[in-house]
Design a protein around this nucleic acid. Structure first.
Length: 877
RNA sequence: GGGCGCUUAGCUCAGUUGGUUAGAGCGUCUGGUUUACACCCAGAAGGCCGAAGGUUCGACUCCUUCAGCGCCCACCA
């Protein structure tokens, strides 16, 4: 016998072990079944999982379990990501607490330290993924730094290099001075800050800047060609007084670069520390002179400020400029967007550096003669990849179209080492020796001078380079594995919309290149989980909810449901304890309904599945089977089409309202049909299993005659037959009316009352449900007639065409009853007016579909009948 | 500056291609130990579906404008 209340903690871990041990999560690449595959977005191997991971695990597990039950060969590949910068930062912080820097430790020891840390994190993460009930194939678990995956990374790099898509170049990049590394464009975030804005006299003009410390080498002034104020200077070269004496400055005009409205309309350019200026410098072939170095210190060109931090330099430089009379004025309330590193929030310094890039515009055979940009846009435009919800298409296209070459080299230690070597022989050797050697294997000697003195590139690859290969590298590529053949392209990529660019877009880029194929057919993007006030959960606000704590309190099933119901793809949701508690209550409801049904089986000594005779069904049996059939259809449809919330909602309502409130209550009598109860309960367990796998599996194990584990059960087929539950609908409406009337007239709930029903056309329905009506409406004596007279002083109502009367004069509050009837008649009047208005409209009759017109006619006649009865009753009171 | 989205009951949110007298959960109120469940049961109150126009026989649903809120991208010398 089941416990009185469901205690998730008591069962979940054991159930998970049983699943895992049984091999139920394992997918077979040799099977004949149609494949369904999800690559789990690999959590960063840094610490613990949060709700963002929890919602991803819940959604993906629901999809996987549903498709598995539907007969697909379902594969869910788990894994973790080395998360280059994030992990390195974490370990650097830990080291800082010990007073050590990574440089002091040296590359090798540092990497060992990181490996230890990652191994610990992975253990924690694996455990947490299991806690959520995730039915992923642990034998296929991967890590982005696994040897196999490293091979895939190198393979792609070398191929891209050979195809000319990867190149090495001196270009302006985003540089984090704290991480000491480049960042990709989308790894830069912007924060609004207030800084002083300086207007500085630059010869005959005044220029505005928030960063005077970058201006030491500015030698060119750009103005708009139409700007009357400055037209006279264009093309001139003149001596002007600058920070360290006179310099020569040139004036040029550019209609795209200069904006007359902005600032003073004149600007000087700083090619080495501004993306826009860098491009301008290229355009006009200007000198590109660095001012700030890679540690964020001023270079010798800054004269007495050399070696200073940027901030310090700025303060002192402004003082100097003031003395020199160069400062025109200072605007103290200037707000602008400061670019910062997405991993450590340090200000990003744009600077020029020699780095590796992926060319996004170069056309290439492997991309069907198109560029990365073109291919990536094409596969979504053509619908090969479908993004859910589709509002993200536009965002995706927009990002792709504006994409600049992707800087992929990082000056950090943790990650995939770039497979490039340089000949370190005497520099006078041969000019060719300065060419990088790009190779799959460590080269033995320089191919030009045969020197064995080779040095590998110190840099590692952007972490997103390796995660971009995730869908296929995890399946064995570049080897032609059975897994790859069976499961790629994967079916769905389910992840948060916040990494659409970082990850999803890059997977599309890399897969269309390396495999000539899409990485996945659908992209399902979930929203962010926020706190009760709609704020992002964060450490600094301390408003985060720990999924493990919630699982401990309410169970994994409850947590899963709370994140999945009432939320649609792409939209953020708020989550808080009461919500999770509500779904804990649901799991308990399911538990108790099962407990009740199982009790009946025990009582009747039912030890195995009782045969269900679909030809001998009471009206109530048909009623619940019809509802169940509808539920099966809509749950299947909803899950197939990624409307996961709807599937959960439909099941919630069916279990609670239809099954518990009515089916089980109606079954507490002589007409109880244990076979029907058995099959309905069994079907409910299967249907609910993808969403709440633990509680359903536990109940399943207690269900007499259930075989094997629920996880392996097939998704239910519809019960065959035409089921008519209309008599039960009538009974339900009559019972509800009686309950309402009792409450309105303040009849004690315990008190049994006499009731008169005039059934009219519904006599048969009422006769067949007398027992249930008497019981559920607490009736002492039921008088059932086809029709009859109004009873003086009786409370009356009409339900489903049946006159419902409670003829106890003393019990009825006549005044209230009059008020109620008057109000209802007024309502009906309005309603009838609107419906008959519609039906009087020629255009409506002409244009509306027949079914709609018929529906309106029925509405009108029903309402009219009801109103007439109400009027009669009112007259009779 | 460009783009996207949201605005429905006190709160959190559903509402499939336009056809409901607009739904759920929580909360509130009235009552309840009835063959599982107080993590429960029965009942009730509560909404001009952000505002104004338009299209349509018909609009919460489609279009336009506006307001408030939010997000993303670009970037301001």
């Amino acid at each position: 016998m089941l416990d009185k209340a469901y205690d998730a903690k008591k069962y979940e871990d054991a159930i998970y072990k049983k699943w895992e041990k049984s091999g139920a999560f394992k997918a077979d690449s040799q099977s004949k079944k149609k494949p369904f595959c999800i690559s789990m977005p690999p959590p960063n191997a840094t610490g613990t999982l949060h709700l963002g991971h929890a919602i991803m695990l819940a959604l993906e597990d629901i999809l996987i379990r549903h498709r598995r039950m539907k007969g697909y060969e379902a594969l869910w590949v788990p894994g973790t990501d080395h998360a280059a910068i994030a992990t390195q930062n974490k370990v650097e912080k830990l080291l800082a607490e010990e007073g050590v820097t990574r440089e002091q430790l040296g590359r090798e020891s540092f990497l060992n330290r990181v490996k230890e840390y990652v191994a610990d994190s992975q253990d924690i993460i694996r455990n947490q993924i299991r806690k959520m009930g995730s039915s992923c194939d642990w034998e296929r678990e991967r890590y982005t730094l696994d040897d196999d995956l490293n091979r895939a990374v190198i393979e792609v790099f070398v191929r891209m290099y050979e195809d000319g898509l990867i190149y090495r170049g001196h270009r302006i990049v985003n540089w984090c001075t704290r991480c000491g590394s480049t960042l990709a464009d989308d790894e830069v975030e912007y924060v609004e800050v207030q800084t002083p804005f300086y207007y500085i006299k630059y010869g005959p003009v005044v220029i505005g800047t928030a960063r005077p410390e970058t201006k030491f080498a500015d030698k060119v002034v750009v103005v708009h060609p139409e700007d009357k104020r400055y037209k006279k200077y264009v093309g001139q070269e003149m001596d002007i007084d600058w920070i360290d004496g006179k310099i020569k400055a040139k004036f040029i005009a550019d209609k795209d670069a200069a904006d007359m409205e902005m600032g003073t309309g004149a600007m000087t350019i700083t090619p080495a520390h501004s993306f826009v200026d860098f491009d301008l410098a290229k355009k006009y072939k200007l000198e590109i002179e660095p001012i700030i170095d890679e540690r964020g210190k001023m270079l010798p060109i800054a004269g007495e400020f050399a070696g200073m931090d940027v901030a310090e330099c700025r303060t002192l430089l402004v003082k100097k400029m003031q003395k020199l009379g160069l400062i025109d004025r200072i605007d103290e309330n200037y707000t602008h967007n400061l670019s910062v590193c997405y991993r450590c929030n340090t200000a990003v310094e744009p600077l020029v550096s020699e780095q590796w890039f992926i060319d996004v515009n170069k056309k290439c055979k492997a991309l069907k003669g198109k560029s990365i940009k073109q291919r990536s846009i094409e596969v979504v435009k053509k619908g090969d990849i479908q993004i859910i919800p589709d509002k993200f298409n536009k965002t995706y296209f927009h990002w792709m179209e504006d994409l600049r070459d992707w800087c992929i080299s990082r000056q950090i230690w943790w990650g995939h080492r770039i497979p490039v070597w340089y000949c370190a022989c005497d520099k006078n050797c041969k000019p060719e020796c300065r060419q990088p050697i790009v190779s799959r294997e460590t080269p033995k000697a320089c191919s030009h001078c045969k020197s064995k003195n080779l040095k590998q590139d110190e840099d590692t690859l952007d972490t997103w380079f390796s995660s971009a290969l995730w869908t296929f590298s995890t399946l064995g590529w570049p080897k032609k594995t059975a897994d790859l053949k069976k499961f790629h392209p994967t079916s769905v990529m389910e992840t948060g919309y916040d990494i659409l660019f970082f990850w999803v877009a890059r997977m599309i880029i890399m897969t269309t290149y390396a495999l000539g194929d899409i990485p996945f057919e659908k992209v399902y993007l979930h929203g962010l989980i926020r706190d009760r006030e709609g704020r992002k959960m964060s450490k600094s606000l301390n408003n985060g909810i720990d999924p493990l704590e919630m699982i401990d309190q309410f169970g994994a099933d409850a947590l899963r449901m709370s994140m999945v119901i009432g939320n649609t793809p792409g939209n953020d949701m708020r989550l808080y304890e009461e919500k999770i508690k509500g779904y804990r209550n649901f799991t308990n409801k399911l538990w108790n309904a099962s407990r009740f049904v199982l009790g009946i089986f025990e009582e009747k000594n039912i030890k195995s599945a009782p045969p269900l005779d679909l030809k001998k069904l009471s009206d109530s049996d048909q009623w619940i089977l019809e509802k169940l059939n509808r539920t099966i259809t809509s749950v299947d449809d909803a899950l197939t089409n990624f409307r996961i919330s709807e599937a959960g909602q439909v099941l919630y309502d069916f279990l609670w309202s239809d099954f518990c409130d009515w089916c089980l209550e109606l079954s507490k009598g002589e007409k109880q049909n244990p076979a029907v109860l058995y099959h309905v309960l069994k079907t409910i367990l299967i249907l609910l299993h993808p969403i709440v796998p633990f509680v359903t599996e536990q109940i399943w194990s207690e269900l007499p005659g259930s075989q094997g584990m629920l996880i392996n059960e097939a998704f239910p087929a519809l019960f065959k037959g035409k089921f008519d539950g209309s008599a039960t609908d009538t009974a339900i409406e009559v019972i509800s009316a009686l309950r309402r009337m009792r409450a309105e007239n303040k009849i004690e709930p315990g008190e049994k009352i006499p009731v008169v029903l005039y059934g009219h056309q519904k006599m048969a329905a009422l006769e067949s449900h007398q027992e249930e009506i008497i019981k559920l409406a607490r009736i002492s004596k039921l008088t059932l007639k086809e029709e009859g007279p109004k009873l003086p002083g009786a409370a009356t109502d009409v339900a489903s065409g049946v006159d419902v009367l409670i003829p106890l004069g003393g019990l009825v509050d006549t005044k209230k009853e009059k008020e109620r009837l008057t109000k209802e008649i007024a309502n009906l009047n309005k309603y009838i007016a609107s419906v008959s208005g519609k039906l009087a409209n020629k255009h409506f009759l002409q244009n509306a579909p027949k079914a709609v017109v018929e529906g309106e006619k029925k509405k009108l006649s029903d309402a009219t009948v009801r109103m007439n009865k109400m009027k009669e009753q009112l007259a009779h009171l």
